[in-house]
Design a protein around this nucleic acid. Structure first.
Lengths: 357, 357
DNA sequence: CATGAAATGATCGACGTCTATCATCTCGCA
DNA sequence: TGCGAGATGATAGACGTCGATCATTTCATG
């Protein structure tokens, strides 16, 4: 009734432990016939290698490396904090997390960093990728050298990595559009103001596209203004938003799909509270939390960085162990937060990622 | 640089391995002075017991038992499917999941089942609890016998369990209210129809209370009809909903906080599609997915049963190992699904929980 | 039939911990 | 001074696997 060991498998296959081991660990030098009998015994007994005993024996620690964009604020800071928070927990499972910052939004710098990586000190790599030929090539080299690669948040293209963990940004944009439509129920007319960082960013483009799709749907399309480009800069955002909110006709809804929302929130706070537009924006930060609490905005769409980190680690572990990755692990569903379903803020220590304070 | 072993601790403390082991495993018979030195060495070296080596040595497998309400449909079926899906995955981590059904909504039957449990074949218990004296007492006995108890979905009271995993139903109801307010933007007047299973259910009561709080808030309260009691029965639900939708004035929003939504959806499908009310309901099922896709409803609030199961297992493991439970593990934030952010449906095999098909 | 390569068996010492046993040492106290 | 209880040390054998080494068997080939 208890779990069979490799010894049991060997006995069942009528071979020695050594031969069963040769098959299991693909050491070669086994006759086809014997190999078949061992595999059959494994199947029949439902043998599963005891990964923990194996790791103990071979003194294995999983060295996983994360390449994350630098940045002390906003989403990447949360991603980094989530990673550092996982570090001590995963240590108990022999997972050692190496963490390296690379310049944000810079495919060349990312490629440099990837090219500098040696496969021997890395059992798995998670990277906020970019769709660039050099990045793809650097990843191809690493994978050829046996390093599993997980793309995180931003994909490198289906061919360039083993697994992708991230949200569906088109779906996020469509969901924002859907919420905006909901807020224009009862046949109310509206004018939607989209704000993005830059159309050069793939995720922003996807969100905008999703928004437009839904606004254009159905018998009563909603009108949209041209998208503002705030370049993820709070000051610029504030100036643009202030002006746009004063325009006539005023927008009835605002969807900000990039960063720098602090500026937008300041502009909203200064504007007349009555008849403020419906506002949806991205990422749960101290500022957006506060804005929700103060009824300055309505919805925050969040990428759940902590979940993305956890999923990436689980995927890397599965890849390193040669196991199947559970279905749906990489498809992170963006969370919608309104005023009353916002999880408690992480403590200051966790948020800063400083676990040694 | 590598992780210290108990051998290292013993050497650093100037005692033998045997004494260090006596301290670590509280076997007694150690002088206070020695014990202090061992503890100090543990602290200084940052020693952490290698749980996997320890489990290997003592042939430990975690026997966790789940008591879930019976029922082939709806939420509990999803909870059960999620549990069975975790079973093979957790087996690799020496976690053995025993699973037992108890009659739903029956505190006495639950207490019977709990009283029948023997602590020796159970290293941890997760249970969809109820706030009843007998249940509390049965749980108290088990905990006194060293069995950690996690309440799942429905709490047993803060004193009666070690940990609670579940959603904040008041917050869920408030969020539904918030969405309904959002759908009545621009000063539109409205009439909200709440539907629950039974006011006897704590979660339904909490959701209703949350809804009412938010509807009553602010300078422009929204009116609500008396709550209908559908008793989680689709047929009854359909009849009640059909009648309510035809009333004059018709409701502008419907919030169904219980089960049996199939009936509500059928009633909506039969009603005039133009000017249908805004609809929010609970639990992502095949029916609610379909209704989202067909634009019959607007929002589905989901408890994320798979996440609740995973959190319960993680909590049980941490309790069994005497580790701290990560912050925020038990507080499941309910998910809001609109038409475009609904995760892919689990395959038929997964949904049925039948993994051997 | 001898030869050599390929296949197989047997076994050892790790890995870090647990459980157990037995021998030895250190005291206070009679 | 000697006794006994309590504290400590030393060590063995497991847990299931890995990575070796070395000896033995099998078998096609010349």
């Amino acid at each position: 009734m208890k779990k069979p060991t490799l010894q049991d498998v060997a006995a069942a296959a009528g071979v020695s432990y050594a031969t069963a081991d040769r098959v299991l660990n693909a050491r070669g030098g086994v006759a086809e016939k014997s190999e078949a009998r061992v595999r059959e015994a494994i199947r029949r007994l439902g043998y599963v290698r005891d990964i923990h005993a194996a790791n103990l024996s071979r003194r294995r620690v999983y060295a996983f490396r994360f390449l994350l964009p630098a940045g002390d604020h906003g989403f990447f800071a949360r991603l980094r904090a989530a990673l550092l928070a996982e570090r001590p927990r995963r240590a108990a499972d022999r997972i050692e997390i190496a963490f390296q910052e690379v310049p944000a939004f810079d495919a060349e710098a990312l490629a440099d960093a990837l090219e500098a990586l040696a496969p021997e000190d890395c059992d798995g790599l998670a990277v906020v990728a970019a769709e660039s030929p050099r990045v793809a090539q650097a990843l191809a080299r690493l994978r050829a050298q046996g390093v599993p690669v997980v793309a995180l948040v931003a994909d490198a293209g289906p061919e360039a990595r083993d697994f992708y963990v991230g949200v569906d940004n088109l779906g996020a944009g469509r969901t924002a559009g859907r919420l905006i439509r909901l807020a224009h129920g009862g046949g109310r007319r509206g004018l939607v103001l989209p704000i993005l960082g830059t159309p050069a960013a793939r995720d922003h483009r996807d969100r905008l596209e999703g928004l437009r799709q839904v606004l254009a749907e159905g018998p009563e399309p909603l009108a949209a203004l041209p998208a503002l480009e705030a370049r993820d800069d709070p000051a610029r955002m504030k100036a643009l938003a202030r002006e746009a909110l004063r325009a006539d006709p005023a927008p009835t809804a605002v969807y900000s799909m990039g960063a720098g929302n602090r500026g937008l929130i300041e502009a909203l706070r200064e504007a007349a509270p009555e008849r403020r537009p419906m506002v949806a924006l991205h990422e749960l930060t101290p500022h957006s939390r506060k804005a929700l609490a103060e009824n300055l905005i309505d919805v925050v769409i969040d990428q759940k960085p902590a979940r993305e980190i956890a999923a990436a680690l689980d995927a890397l572990k599965a890849l390193a162990d040669g196991r199947a990755i559970p279905a749906g692990l990489g498809a992170i569903t963006p969370a919608l937060h309104l005023k009353d379903n916002t999880p408690a803020a992480p403590s200051a220590r966790e948020a800063s990622g400083d676990l040694f304070a």
